[in-house]
């Protein structure tokens, strides 16, 4: 709970700072809706990354899976004229297969997650570029009904503001993720495995199955994210669509309180962490005296600052805990 308050504080601080500096342009309905939509989209893929990180793994292939799905969806619908339900089913199937193969390679072939998903990062992008021959894939003005899934919004009664659809999707995903992580047997297993896989195995847990599940969830949410991104933007260039998104997802999860050592993290924290990243990017665009070309430097510095503060707070808390523990002995 304290951890969420910290990251929430950071989010509010950045929002207020941007508001003061950029004034009206930050709180205009247009900007806020775009910002919320973006944050929600990145929130979805950050939740996926969080599941993998909680089991002490890593997934570097998120951006490339987004590229694969983002290019294949318009390609299937426009170039191949595959019916919408079938195309969506195929995309879900592809994401599932990717997650399964990552999980199997990591648990059964005992390869390191970093290596497996690094190869995935290269492989899926190359595969996409090969399939669509490096051509930009778009909906060519069609499929507007399907696209409202990402571009549409629900008016908030009594205000000029609307709630973008991706935000509703994120709420659904986050609710399911919270239930899975905190209230089901599998979520508890994930936290246990992230802390100490050996002890979990000694407790009779099928650790392989739980780890595979984490990679499947991550790939499915990457696929969902890729679909929403391409529906939102309308087109995807295979060369750079989703580039670096795995890093945004991982950074969001880490800012939100996940430790790369595993076993730690809350879904709410991760969603807020993802939002912090997007607000920062928005700040850099809106505030005139921050040059946009230093965007990565600003984001990097903020993540480092956040993680450092967290580490210091934790060290302090651990010291205090150790002291009280000694006193009760």
């Amino acid at each position: 709970m304290k951890k969420i308050l910290g990251i929430l504080g950071l989010l509010i601080f950045i929002c207020l700072a941007t508001w003061t500096m950029a004034e009206e342009s930050f709180i205009s309905p247009f900007n806020t809706q775009n910002l919320i939509r973006r944050s929600a989209e990145f929130g979805i893929i950050s939740i996926g990354a969080a599941f993998v990180i909680i089991t002490a793994g890593i997934d570097l292939s998120i951006g490339s899976v987004i590229c694969l799905v983002g290019c294949l969806l318009p390609w299937m619908l426009v170039e191949r004229q595959i019916p919408v339900p079938l195309a969506l089913l195929l995309i879900a199937g592809i994401s599932l297969a990717i997650g399964l193969s990552h999980g199997l390679l990591i648990t059964k072939a005992k390869l390191q997650p970093f290596v497996v998903t690094l190869c995935g990062l290269l492989f899926y992008r190359g595969l996409t570029r090969g399939i669509v021959h490096d051509q930009t894939q778009g909906f060519k003005g069609g499929f507007s009904e399907l696209r409202t899934l990402a571009t549409g919004q629900v008016p908030i009664p009594g205000t000029d503001y609307n709630l973008p659809n991706p935000c509703l999707i994120l709420m659904g995903v986050a609710t399911l993720a919270i239930i899975l992580l905190n209230f089901t047997v599998y979520g508890r297993y994930m936290l246990a495995i992230g802390r100490n896989e050996t002890a979990a195995r000694f407790s009779g847990i099928n650790t392989d199955r739980v780890i595979i599940l984490a990679y499947v969830i991550c790939a499915l949410l990457s696929g969902l994210g890729g679909m929403i991104f391409v529906l939102d933007i309308g087109s995807a260039q295979p060369v750079d669509f989703g580039n670096f998104y795995e890093l945004y997802a991982i950074a969001g999860a880490v800012l939100g309180g996940c430790s790369l050592r595993g076993g730690e993290g809350t879904i709410i924290g991760v969603v807020i962490g993802a939002a912090v990243m997007q607000v920062l990017r928005n700040t850099i665009t809106l505030v005139d005296h921050i040059p946009t070309n230093i965007e990565y430097a600003v984001i990097g510095a903020v993540i480092l600052g956040g993680v450092m503060t967290d580490a210091l707070v934790k060290r302090f808390a651990a010291k205090r805990l150790a002291r009280t523990a000694k006193n009760t002995d």
Binding site: R195, N196, T198, A199
Partner: peptide
């Protein structure tokens, strides 16, 4: 410590 317990919980 390694096989029997999850020390951080």
């Amino acid at each position: 410590k390694n096989e029997g317990l999850i020390l951080e919980t």
